Structure formats: structure tokens, C-alpha cells
Amino acid sequence: MTSDYLGTRLRHLLDRLDGDVARTYTDLGLPGFRPRYTPVLRLVAADGPRSIRDLATTIGVTHSAISQTVNQMRREGLVHLEPGTDARHRIVHLTDQARAVLPTLETEWHATTAAARELDAELPHKLSDLVDAALHALDTRPMHDRIRAHLHHP
């Protein structure tokens, strides 16, 4: 397989995975619920209110990405924010609306985890292992550095 259009194919893969999870939320009576909300809700439900920075670190995404997600969740009534010990920190709390959907999300989470294991079993290499390995390799040497090494400067 060629690496041509790798970014496009990865976005297509993610769109298909997220799209089907979102369809499942609709099937379960949660239309418009976004897959990226689930890790935030599950972490805050399990561990109590958490800072945006802590959520970003634990989930493994950027502070900006979690901040955007939390702001969308706030607009949809799933979380509210309170100031932390430092004015720069905002602490994420679940709303009653979020708590009401947690049982449905737990059911979906277990089904999605089982489906992901099934997908992994059908592939020549586990997708989850490949993603972890790719992220580790990019932590070691970012794609920017790899690209620059192949650029030919006049």
C-alpha cells in the first residue's frame, strides 16, 4: 500500500469511525451527540471535576482541542465551568443533563469497545497498536522534521 494521500485516507477513516459512532448515538436517542464528548464525560463522571488542562493530558489531545470540545459541551448544556485555584484554570463539572445520559454512554462505550476489538481482529495488524506506534514515532520525530529532511532546497 502506498502512502499517497495518507492524510486524506486517515481523515476518511476517522470520519467513517466517528460517523458510525454518532449514528449509534442517534439510534440510542442522543441525536447530535458527538463522539469526542464521551471521553470528557466519562472522565469527569469517574474522577469528579477536572481542569481542561488535565483532561487534555489524560485524553492525549491538545489543550485547544479540549477547550473547543468543552465549550461546545457547555453550549449544549452538558457541562458547566468554574474557575480553578488559578484564574487561568477552568474546572469542568457535569450538569444533570450529562448525568442523565451516562448510563446510555456506558452501554455504548462497552459496545464500541467490543466492536473495535472485532475490527482489530479482522486486520493484519491491530489498528489500535498501529495508532499508538505512529503517535509514539511522531513524538520521537515529528512529521515536520521528517518532511524537511526530504525537501530539496535550491
Rank of each mutant, 00 (worst) to 15 (best):
L138Q: 12
L151I: 13
H144A: 15
M143D: 10
G29I: 00
M1V: 15
L105Y: 15
H110Q: 14
M73R: 10
R34N: 05
H93C: 11
A116W: 09
R36Y: 08
T26V: 04
A100W: 08
G77I: 12
G32L: 05
D4E: 15
L94W: 02
T113I: 15
A45P: 08
G84H: 05
T8Q: 07
S51K: 02
G29V: 04
T85S: 10
W109D: 14
R53G: 02
H63I: 00
D18M: 07
L127S: 11
A137R: 09
A87E: 10
E106Q: 11
G29C: 00
P35G: 08
H153T: 13
H110P: 03
P124S: 07
P154K: 14
D47V: 01
D132G: 06
A45G: 11
T95H: 14
Y25E: 03
R53Q: 07
D27I: 04
A133T: 13
P142D: 14
R117C: 03
P49C: 01
L28T: 03
V79T: 07
V79R: 06
E106T: 07
R146I: 15
T140M: 05
T113H: 13
L94T: 05
E118R: 09
A87Q: 05
D139S: 11
R23A: 15
H63T: 00
S51T: 04
L81S: 05
M73S: 03
T26G: 03
P31A: 13
Y5W: 02
R75Q: 11
T85C: 05
W109L: 14
G7L: 11
H63F: 04
K126L: 05
V79L: 08
D4F: 11
Q97K: 15
Q68G: 01
L81G: 03
A87V: 06
R99P: 02
D54I: 03
F33C: 07
A149Q: 09
R50W: 00
T95I: 14
I59H: 07
A114K: 09
